[in-house]
Amino acid sequence: MSALDPTAPPPGEGAPKGDVLRRLRGNPTFVVGAFIFLLIFLMAIFAPLLAPYDPYSQSMSNRVVPPVWMERGSWDHVLGTDGLGRDYLSRIIYGARISLLIAIFTVITSGLIGTTLGVLSGYFGGKVDLVINFFIMTRLTLPVVMVALAVVALFGGSLTVVILVLGFLLWDRFAVVTRAATQQLRNQEYIQASRSLGFTTRQIIFRDVLPNILDRLAVIATFEMAQAILLEAALSFLGLGVQPPTPSWGLMVAEGRQFLLFDPWLIMIPGAAIVVLVMAINLAGDGLRDAMAPENRN
């Protein structure tokens, strides 16, 4: 792409829309990731139909039944039962709801905060940029897990608190990337043209800037969703996230810990569920990034 080539898209604008869709379909990384994500998403939505048992119903006579592929396992409980005799498969299916709720709402919160700060700082520059940059630096120095643990301990562990804490902590990447992208766009001719035509700043930001950084936002969103899922799992594992008896995958690993020696499958299964979901999101994100900017791939 030469600087003198008049047909070259401006930096940040990327490839035309139809092109991106076509490349996404032909990108195996994206297709596999998105497909697995979609499956888990559907599993979460239709959990009541798919789960063979109530994820909360305990059975003291059926405790720690191993999964079907192990000795003593049976088709009654395909993934076995936990220490309280609750069906593990049903808890895994319902657990997808928690992870996805956290991922989606955290990214909406952090995306709003980060994009607002990033666009403002990139568009206005000067003092606004200095102040917002300082916010970003301060945020980066905060140890995320420790702050999140402390806040959950103060306010009590619930889905809303976890989402808000993570949302208010994970906006830095959105801000850094949108800031840089907006700085690039600010001096583009079409934005200068809009400005001289008398469009208001608000109109320029919503009609000229945001649509052109949407692709990058999508890539960061996948990355932050993965982060949010891993962090929720860690918080719940440490006992300061989603509270029992809610079926959160991280919490299930914590509950399985007492059976570590003889029944390690109790921690393997929920952990594997986290890995599959996070990996699917990361693959989709990688594919998305490559499809948006094929020239950056090497």
């Binding site: 020696l261 390690p264 952990g271």
Partner: peptide, 16 residues
């Protein structure tokens, strides 16, 4: 793999 594994879970597996 490294980006998808929760580190507490990986730690527990190493432990086991």
């Amino acid at each position: 793999m490294g980006q998808a594994m929760p580190n507490f879970w990986f730690g527990l597996i190493l432990l086991v």
